[in-house]
């Protein structure tokens, strides 16, 4: 158990990647507080504490951190996605998306940093979309690039006591991914095409990201800081142009 005695906060952990990270941390011996905008999910394991908090709100975030006290690990996972180009994006879209994905990460880090024990690890969930563009996801892509930049700044400004890294997931199998394929003209064909573009020939599981998070949270990664680690099954190592699939 590599996280024994450590106390962790995971934002946006109701389901998916955040939930997998929180459960993995518990298995590794950490005590874990998960936060989300709503109430405690009915199916939530007893081992996980729940704190209702909208990280886009600086007051709520500060209150939550005050309640948690000193801790060792922060995972900024809370985030939303809006599928629009710049031209179609409204002011409300901006507030909603940048509030959660950019300001939320900032709010949590600002409140948490004075409360982190020496040797602490902050893990931000970025995205491959912060490095290369997904079409029709302009603000989401930009918000993840913000996360990557903030990650480096925190590492530089708050080392050596605090390490800060980002994980950049690729396509992770969640309900959202399947819903996307269901919209395709031929869902099976679309799924096979997408799989062929992954060197791993599969999509990611939330656990794949959680495994990386455990390593970054643990002292095994004590020399890793300021980096964005891509975990995408090889998707972005390949050219977007693959004649074999034409």
């Amino acid at each position: 158990m590599v996280l024994e005695g450590k106390k962790a906060l995971v934002t946006g952990g109701r389901q998916g990647i955040g939930r997998a990270i929180a459960e993995s941390f518990v298995r590794e011996g950490a005590s874990v507080i998960v936060c989300g905008r709503g109430g405690r999910p009915s199916d939530f394991p007893d081992a996980l504490s729940w704190h209702q908090c909208d990280v886009a709100d600086p007051n709520q975030t500060a209150q939550m951190i005050a309640a948690i006290g000193t801790h060792d690990i922060v995972v900024n996972n809370a985030g939303i996605q809006i599928e629009k180009t710049v031209a179609d994006t409204t002011d409300d879209d901006w507030d909603l998306l940048m509030g959660a994905n950019a300001r939320g990460v900032f709010n949590v880090c600002r409140a948490a940093i004075p409360n982190l024990n020496p040797g602490a690890s902050i893990i931000n969930i970025g995205s491959i979309s912060g490095n290369v563009a997904d079409p029709g996801m302009a603000l989401y892509n930009a918000s993840k690039a913000f996360v990557h930049g903030l990650t480096r700044s925190i590492a530089v400004d708050h080392g050596p006591d605090i390490r800060c890294n980002a994980i950049c997931p690729g396509w992770i199998e969640t309900g959202m991914l399947e819903a996307g394929f269901d919209l395709a003209k031929d869902p099976d064909l679309a799924r096979n095409d997408a799989l062929a573009r992954h060197a791993a020939r599969r999509f990611g599981q939330p656990q794949d990201i959680a495994n990386m998070a455990v390593w970054l949270a643990s002292d095994a990664s004590s020399f890793a800081t300021g980096q964005c680690f891509t975990v995408d099954g090889g998707l972005t190592a390949a050219s977007p142009l693959n004649p074999g699939l034409f």
Binding site: I128, S129, V132, A133, D134, P135, G180, F181, L183, A184, L189, A190, D193, A194, R197, L235, T236, A238, S239, P240, L241, N242, L245
Partner: peptide
């Protein structure tokens, strides 16, 4: 602009 994108899947 080729490498600004992720791989373009046919959906």
């Amino acid at each position: 602009g080729l490498s600004a994108q992720v791989q373009q899947m046919k959906l």
